[in-house]
Nucleic acid binder design. Structure first.
Ligand code: MN
Ligand code: MN
Ligand code: ZN
Ligand code: ZN
Lengths: 141, 141
DNA sequence: TTGCTTAATGCAATTTGGTTGCAAATATAC
DNA sequence: GTATATTTGCAACCAAATTGCATTAAGCAA
């Protein structure tokens, strides 16, 4: 996985640093979403918050990570798994296990409801409980 | 319009105060979205930020206003124009004039893509340029 | 391999948006 | 009008994001 991270960094013309490798491996090894605070906890001793922040920022700018806001307005990041033809960012995020799945484009019939309003960005976040977590917590909670 | 505001307050069992009337009238008189900061600017001398905040909060709890986050994670509010049967919050917001229009439910065929993942909340924000603003700024920008 | 140059990092400080405790002011019911 | 409960202003606080700057480290060239 560190190999994969190294390659990605090279492909994007980024210097290979411990911070960047560490951060990227978190994402490469998981389907989950992470906030800056999550990373701070993971790397509390090893890396400073500002450096983690700057790595997230860099990855976002390079399109390696996606960034969006949860219901409370906190930025959350996930590996960008969207197809290049994607017309925006659509995700389902499990409130329990934090797993994020990318969803396909909104149907064009729906977008036609915009009429002559021109779409530039679009962001859809559906939150709920994933199949796994529903089975884990049968009736409880 | 102050009449309309007064009625809304009464209907919701809220005391009629200058702050609440002022805030509500901002929304009743506009199709736009406003942040707390927007209101602070409008009422800089007349009302305190914390009171504006609490009014927004109250209106949101009563379902009079909608609250969602823009791309940068800042909370924005608009008059709630969604139908009661709405399965989530979908909006188009013009980046230029800030006008917000509510969009209908996502089509059920699309939601079926979630499979057994259970939706609890959903939030769609499409940003772009409204028809009006496109015509105002023909080729410029 | 060794320096040189530039970019990345750590640390501390700052900004921004959101939120709260509390005393004073105000709205409503009596 | 007065009593009571609510709302407000102010100041303080909090969380997340962001920045300036001196130090350190990565990559390249000698
Ligand atoms: Mn998290
Ligand atoms: Mn605004
Ligand atoms: Zn889950
Ligand atoms: Zn517009």
């Amino acid at each position: 996985m560190i190999q994969e991270a190294t390659t990605l960094l090279k492909e994007n013309g980024l210097k290979i640093t411990q911070n960047r490798l560490d951060v990227l491996c978190v994402f490469l090894g998981s389907e989950k979403a992470f906030t800056l605070l999550d990373l701070e906890k993971i790397f509390s001793l090893k890396h400073d918050r500002s450096s983690l922040f700057r790595s997230l920022q860099t990855y976002y700018e390079k399109g390696i990570l996606e960034k969006f806001c949860n219901a409370t307005g906190t930025a959350i990041y996930t590996l960008n798994r969207h197809k290049p033809d994607c017309n925006g960012k659509s995700h389902f995020k499990c409130k329990d296990c934090e797993t994020v799945v990318s969803l396909p484009n909104l149907p064009t019939e729906y977008l036609q409801l915009l009429g002559n309003n021109k779409m530039e960005t679009m962001n859809l976040l559906i939150e709920g409980t994933c199949e796994n977590c529903q089975n884990k917590n049968p009736e409880t909670l």
